[in-house]
Design a protein around this nucleic acid. Structure first.
Lengths: 200, 200
DNA sequence: TTGATAAGCGGAACAAAGTTCCGTATCGTC
DNA sequence: GACGATACGGAACTTTGTTCCGCTTATCAA
């Protein structure tokens, strides 16, 4: 997780060289652009070329592709994390808060070409991406789910992890086929989550 | 779609050479084994080696990976196609038939390492795999869905194509993480499909 | 049985992408 | 300005997919 510059210069002198910090910035911008243009699988060479650096420089700053992807999307993921408690506080119904939060997450995912796919890939390259998303988002989702469950609004036999996986999966391929809309099927899933007396 | 041998020798003589038919058989077996061992992404070289043929022979018989995958799983997909009408006939409730049919499909998908992923991949290599599955299964699903809808058992605003996409997506990653069970979330989705007077 | 010929085969060769490594250039400091 | 540490660039190597063509072999007619 690259992070070290700007702010208060820490004791000792582990501060990165100026050119390194500059390159990291440049790379982040180039990667973001490449991700929009070609998805999160954009070839390393392309990103390097766009940033005007050698491929070695990418690997030095972001050892795995997941590191780069996380760095690019960190802000938005964190925004999602913060949205959870806010929605819970701003809604009378925890279920409504959950629905809105999930919508927010889906909006984020479907607009990031290839990200949902990467999240579910079993490629080792993306393992830590997967881990990061789950580490940050599952606890938030669990809070929402617990609240809704406590209010008797949703079934209590579904775990946050499972729900997040399901929602992430449903986002795959959204945008490639206009007849498939992730938002619609996610809504269906959440509807199935509603507490119901009716058996299976 | 390789298919031409055995049975009645057709007029003219477009019958394949014996060694070619033999190789096709061998390849199919080798591929099936490789798919089980390493998923449907098993390297072409590995499959060729396992079958004791050159890579050229694979490409001659199965020009794209999708052709090979379809050939390996055709029987099971067709079984799924035939199960549709049978279930509809054998159940009083079309909704129950739909649920059983989807379960059947999910069982098939989750036991084929990497197949669900391949189905959703936007890789051009798998385009025709995607097409084959949809061509065969969507009509069956549509019949079940229509019947259930006509019986007032499910919402009428969901298309078969969308449902199949969703179910396929939900199968991704099942088996990699014991905390995620495709069957469970698919059941949730189908529950959300139930006709309901409750809004939202 | 034996050629002739078309069908089929093998695998070298090429291409695309990821990843590593090290000689060289640059930064920051004394 | 010199020097050590840091960072850079990109050639080289790896893996996997894909193509191509000279060689082999099955088939068939004579």
């Amino acid at each position: 997780m690259p992070d070290d510059d700007g702010g208060a210069p820490e004791r000792r002198s582990p501060r990165k060289r100026a050119d390194a910090r500059r390159n990291e910035e440049t790379l982040l911008r180039a990667a973001a652009a490449a991700f929009v243009a070609s998805g999160v699988d954009a070839p390393v060479r392309d990103i390097a070329a766009k940033a005007g650096v050698g491929v070695g420089t990418i690997y030095r700053h972001f050892p795995t592709r997941a590191d780069l992807v996380v760095a690019v999307y960190r802000h938005q993921v964190e925004a999602c994390v913060e949205a959870g408690p806010a929605l819970l506080a701003g809604n009378d119904s925890p279920h409504a808060a959950l629905v809105q939060w999930v919508d927010h997450f889906v909006d984020f995912l479907v607009t990031k070409h290839g990200l949902a796919e990467a999240l579910r890939s079993d490629d080792a390259t993306f393992q830590s991406l997967h881990t990061y998303f789950l580490d940050r988002l599952v606890p938030v989702c669990a809070d929402l789910l617990d609240a809704a469950s406590a209010a008797g609004e949703v079934r209590s036999d579904v775990e946050a992890l499972e729900l997040m996986h399901a929602v992430g999966n449903l986002c795959i391929g959204s945008g490639r086929d206009s007849r498939y809309d992730a938002r619609r099927v996610v809504a269906l899933l959440l509807r199935g989550l509603r507490a119901g007396r009716e058996a299976a």
